[in-house]
Amino acid sequence: MEVVLEVTNIGKEVAGRTLFQRVTFSCTRDTILFVQGGNGSGKSTLLKILAGIYEPTDGDVRWNTNKIGYVPEHFPEGLRFKVKEYLLLTASFHTSAKESELLLAKYMDLFGLSSFQNTPLANCSKGTKQKVGIIQALLMQPDLLLLDEPLTGLDQGAQKAFVSLLHELRGQIPIIFTAHEEGPITQVATETLQIETGKMSIYQPHRQRKPQRLIRVKFQEEQDLAFVPSDRIHFDGKTAVITVEEDKSDNLLRKLLGADCSILEVKVKS
């Protein structure tokens, strides 16, 4: 299948600090890529490089596209247009007015924006602006869609509508998105990119993970629990709550009893 986007060993340095390095992947029309990484790992910067806004410090990006749709994390403040006027004006950079009007009506309806079409953007809420940001990218009828935290500020209905729209677009254009945590949008992903390692892999949805249990224990000394990984334990005075995978819980309980801890509670993590 034709490669739409090819990224080879790119890295980005900002003010002497390396955000990421040796990121390599390629996208075809079937790709829906979930970019994962911690705060400040450069997810938004990577998307800006893919959108052609920034240049990478190292490496090479090759596009086989005519139009890119880009949804920024925060929609610009202080735009001097009304909702419909802005969307038609930016859509007319690429498509005819008649074509844009039809598509616009469809998306306005989908996101429940019909009653806001003559509202100045400056008066819109964060969620409404985010919807406008998504619609402007879709109206371009892009060959590549880049979404930076697209669900931020959207209500449940709009989130659902947007995720089902992404399902519809699956196989038509490559989609690359970032998200802080797993949620409805990540279920659409086909692949994932760990920005820290720079490698792409098949996406394993969260729901396929093993069920978890919470164990509440009373301990004598904090160092008695040193064998529990720090990201799995939460201390509260002389008690602690430990998260453990269900099939490992019996083994952990034995260890805890051996370390003179009292088991206060064991329950399934919801």
């Binding site: 800006k48 959108a51 052609g52 806004i53 005519n66 139009k67 890119i68 749709g69 880009y70 920024p72 925060h74 929609f75 610009p76 403040e77 202080g78 735009l79 930016t90 950079f93 690429h94 402007q136 371009m140």
Partner: peptide, 12 residues
């Protein structure tokens, strides 16, 4: 942000 968005919308 508006400038970045316009650069993408205008293809460069």
């Amino acid at each position: 942000t508006e400038k970045n968005l316009l650069i993408v919308q205008l293809n460069g």
